[in-house]
Design a protein around this nucleic acid. Structure first.
Lengths: 244, 244
DNA sequence: GCAGCGCATTAACCTATGACATAGGCTGCG
DNA sequence: CGCAGCCTATGTCATAGGTTAATGCGCTGC
């Protein structure tokens, strides 16, 4: 186990969205978590699978992805450290989407039967997990809106805001400088845009002085400006103690 | 209370997605449900609200909707009879979207504290409710994909498939003839398209013999053809006993 | 029986975005 | 050291879908 143990990541996340008591935390500390590393672009779960584990993200960036009949890919949400992407699988026996690493990632696996047992005996923990999936759903709603009704430039700014905000609120970045080895192709799949157009929009954001990019690193130079450009409000992320 | 009582609608829905025992059903029968009627285009819940009720749809069509900064509307999902649209509000104190009637509708309201008490004492019921919100999330995922990666024609066909399928699986329509007093403007808001283009796509579907429309009524003339045109698979709806 | 309204339809024109092609810069590897 | 594979960058051209506006049609209310 690493210095910050994997259950710490899980516990901090659940505390950031829900009200847990001492006893609950002790229970969570005892969950068996199996750590494992993955390369980028690895399908952890595929549509049609019936998983017996869920996993918490310890490091890296994941996405829930779907493929259309003619092979186009849509990323339907991002997942960062602390998130439990396929907790949905706990009560949806057959998966309806893939979960894919978008960067190299370290994950912690937890058995479904263990999680179910905990939920049955500790309603407050069950609620915390439930709430976690509800926040996922709220993010999906925002993405429908983002893709459906915002134009490419705003859409791009919006997704950068979300990523930076979420990474910051789990302490993974400082000062709006995100180390995001995410390709423009992946951004396109998240935004419903072509790679070419992603490139154009990033340039436009740089030209207007809102962001700077050095390699895979994205930096918000003007955070208020970026949020304005991206029509970004944080309510849909349902933080308990909203940071600035 | 009406001949088919409102708790029947709720119970049938939960049974269709989850495994309930006799005892659970008795508990559900005792839930206090307050019925009320609404006209079309009424905002039942607004972004920022802190609701103390959730409601089950007894009749009519609702949508979860969001407004962008420049006033464009996106419908992020539909809700039909049996659905509990804002069950999400049970554990997300502040709402991040609106719930709006898209047609005239009859709803049954249930108090949050009552629902919470039931969930705490009856884990199987809690799981059923949880699962209901997970299916909502799965639908949101599909909509991100639909709007992000399918072109207008396919997208239109897809959404009609979903509506017809869902109405059929709760016994609200026969033989793929849906009585849907939904405007083309609303369809546009659901698909991220302009009204004009919705009109064009509906015409194209009619021209190809896949659907017929008489006033507000939409009929699938060629269901297999329509599902093919719409790239429609039912897995994401997570029916327990998938009908044909 | 007519006024007014909401909605569907149609047409003409315009633009955001996609598709394709190519080049250049990394990085890893034999 | 040089080649291969990925990714970013750029330019040109094509098109799906948006915008605007005009028309019509079926309600409802008076």
């Amino acid at each position: 186990m690493s210095p910050t143990s994997s259950s710490d990541v899980l516990i901090r996340k659940l505390q950031s969205i829900s009200d847990l008591r001492e006893g609950d935390i002790d229970v969570l500390k005892d969950i068996q978590i199996q750590e494992k590393d993955f390369l980028a672009n690895y399908d952890l779960v595929r549509e049609g699978d019936r998983p017996v584990n869920s996993f918490v993200v310890l490091d890296g960036l994941l996405g829930s992805t779907k493929l259309t009949g003619d092979g186009k890919r849509q990323i339907t949400s991002f997942f960062v450290a602390g998130d439990i992407p396929d907790l949905h699988g706990l009560h949806l026996s057959v998966m309806d989407c893939n979960f894919t690493t978008l960067t190299a990632a370290r994950l912690g696996f937890m058995r479904h039967d263990a999680l179910r047992a905990i939920c049955e005996q500790h309603p407050r923990i069950a609620t915390a997990f439930w709430r976690s999936t509800l926040i996922d759903a709220a993010i999906y709603r925002e993405w429908v809106t983002n893709v459906g009704r915002r134009e490419a430039y705003t859409r791009m700014a919006h997704i950068l805001c979300e990523l930076i905000f979420r990474l910051r609120s789990v302490g993974r970045i400082q000062d709006h400088v995100a180390d995001l080895p995410i390709t423009q192709a992946a951004l396109g799949d998240a935004l419903g845009l072509s790679t070419v157009h992603v490139n154009r929009m990033l340039q436009e954001l740089r030209r207007r002085g809102l962001i700077a990019t050095t390699g895979p690193r994205v930096q918000a130079l003007d955070w208020p400006g970026l949020t304005r450009a991206g029509d970004f409000e944080t309510t849909y992320l349902h933080q308990r103690n909203p940071a600035a």
